[in-house]
Nucleic acid binder design. Sequence first.
DNA 1: TCACATTTGTCCGTATGTATC
DNA 2: AGATACATACGGACAAATGTG
Lengths: 242, 242
Amino acid sequence: MDESKDVFEPLKTKRTFEEVSELIKGQIFKGVFKPGDKLPPEAQLAKQFNLGRQTIREALRLLELSGFITVQKGGGGGPVIKDTILQRIGDLFLDSFKMKKISLVELTEVRADIERIVLGYVIDRADESDIKRLKKNVREARKKIDRKVPATQENFQFHRLLAEASKNYLFVIVTESIMAVHTEILSRSGSGLETSANVVMYHEEILKAIIDKDRTEALQLLEKHIKEVGRRLNSGIQSEGA
Amino acid sequence: MDESKDVFEPLKTKRTFEEVSELIKGQIFKGVFKPGDKLPPEAQLAKQFNLGRQTIREALRLLELSGFITVQKGGGGGPVIKDTILQRIGDLFLDSFKMKKISLVELTEVRADIERIVLGYVIDRADESDIKRLKKNVREARKKIDRKVPATQENFQFHRLLAEASKNYLFVIVTESIMAVHTEILSRSGSGLETSANVVMYHEEILKAIIDKDRTEALQLLEKHIKEVGRRLNSGIQSEGA
DNA sequence: TCACATTTGTCCGTATGTATC
DNA sequence: AGATACATACGGACAAATGTG
């Protein structure tokens, strides 16, 4: 029970494959490996670290699921540095939803709150290239609607673009994560043309208010927009890219 | 090039260990396995699925990193169902910070925005047990300060309790994730007694305003509190559990 | 205290599937 | 079409850790 003389840390707390993962992560943080670079194949890594291939494989699994690499099989394949952290966070949010730790109501509430804040920053900070991307987005969404095709993808994209225009990457992460769950829900319930068209109309008006830097109008539109979407979600009818 | 007759989906898109992971996840979602339950040991799982042990191990790595299980060595050990999704999301945020995808300024900005919203909900929704926990928290923090000990842990806990009192678990996730990064930063820079004492004072006052349901006062205090912390962070001096 | 059973961690060798050239 | 390179997966073995009698 006497721990007063535990001055020595255990030499090996982590498992070997965890240490390997950390080492490679470290090199990525330092910029030694950059996105697009290829890591040596398993066999070679095993030699370099003087470890078995199984250990290397499990280390690669960690890196894969932590969003640092992807793995391709076949000749010329192998582990490649690629940043997929955003998808990973989205996946975990989705798991939280499936575990019923998050409800649709909670999700919608936070989304509304975040959107309000983001919109404020967008009006202050959006530059010309942001506006250009947003314009292009609603233009293409409108085109689809005119051709009687739901613009689901574009309507989600609109909110990603808004988050980016806030110039705070954390908003991109949170927005993307919440939308990962909404996308999953929609993929089950489907989405109608009418709803999609309605959403596009709101996006057009909100963008107009952003360009005019009319904060009051933008927030009012958003409020109405969100309430409408919330009503649709609650009544179990299909909604979309709100 | 003609894909018009590709009516058949490929039978096996995912890797075997991914399918195993999904299957086990499914059982957890369905409630067949609950937190605390023990999964069969690797060897037995290998038999049941009629797969090699290596495949099972990689599936367990996925489950581990997705926050569904923990694994213990030795007799009576093995894979145990345990929800660690929150830590996993926090880890990914930390990685995003280390990859310089998030800056300290961005982090502080979002934290301030979220705290404001949370505080509003807390005043509306906090029940007696929430208040009790918050009171206990500041009481213990004060005790530490009186004993000239920094109350770092308690000061972070205060914000987690606030998020919980908002009755929206998403706020808990986001708050916890942001604090995971802040904790890491503090672990490097250290934290002073003076700063800690100052934070505790603010927490006491904010809690008082919450109990009085004085929204204006609470938000004003929070504003001042956050600004002060932001100043400390920016000037590179140690800060804490803001 | 000590021996034992259990279970993960790690290694090696081998075979198979698959993508690239 | 064939050769090459690589991940994927199998089986057997031993080491290390941990709880139990």
